[in-house]
Amino acid sequence: MIPPQFDYHAPGSLDEALGLLGSLDDPKVMSGGQSLLPMLKLRLASPANIVDIGRIPGLDTLAEEDGFLRIGALVTETQLEQSALVALAYPILLDTAKVIADPLVRNRATICGNIAHGDPANDHPATMLALGAQLVATGPDGARTIDIDDFFFGLFMTLLGEDEILTEIRIPAPAPASGGAYVKLERKVGDYAVAGSAVQLSLARDGTVASAGIGLTNLGITPIRATAAEDALTGQAPGDDTIAAAAQAAADATEPIPDRRGSIEYKQNMARVLTARAIRKALARAGG
């Protein structure tokens, strides 16, 4: 399969990239290209211009600073997987990276691209919702920070402007006694999720849940934050009943589209089952 014609630009700086986005007709930002190039080959997308940000220096930060884990625009899934810091302090991110596509795709696919694509079937959005991430969008007027909760608003639609680049994700460093997990159900390795649930929580000294973030994958037209499920956990001792109630609340927050992956009912139940499993795994990691 052959992509349609387009012009390709490889700016050497962020300013140059932003200038191109402002001046070119119908531009499209590309980082790893692992979602965009297949769409081009299928001719589902046909932008006139592609702005490849892959050669811009300084966008490859993966480090903890000022109480945030900073993930730059060019950080790949593989880098996330190989990071000792991530494995130690953000196991939920490792869970997520490991179930995205396959290892070869992950060598080029970026975390920021996974978010910016706005696909409700992508895995990182749910995890970022659970983690309460902030997104740094850089445009002609400089950088702005968008709360992940506000970012997704429709099918493939995000707050990112056409003249903006998602330059960084900032994840608040977890509180003590925190744990998180991402549990995904897929038809086979590398597939989009039938459903996925990301849970990040922290425990109070008395063993009750001090805070909880829950995000869901491919269970509606946008990634879903299951706030009722979070509320059902917060302040509670995480016993079977509490977990069941939170998992059910997560299921209730979904509006899945029936397709070859299953019926509405199946997907809602998977939201419940996977959320319960993610909670248990997160609790274990939190030391609960």
């Binding site: 396959d102 038809r187 086979k188 390795v189 590398g190 597939d191 989009y192 070859r260």
Partner: peptide, 28 residues
């Protein structure tokens, strides 16, 4: 466990790529 070429009522092939025609990998 995985493979099938289904059609919808309009005759659209619903497993027309390896995205939906699920050839087993080394993991399955």
């Amino acid at each position: 466990l995985y493979e099938e070429i289904p059609y919808d009522e309009d005759g659209n092939n619903l497993a027309g790529s390896f995205m939906d025609y699920l050839v087993p990998t080394a993991v399955e």
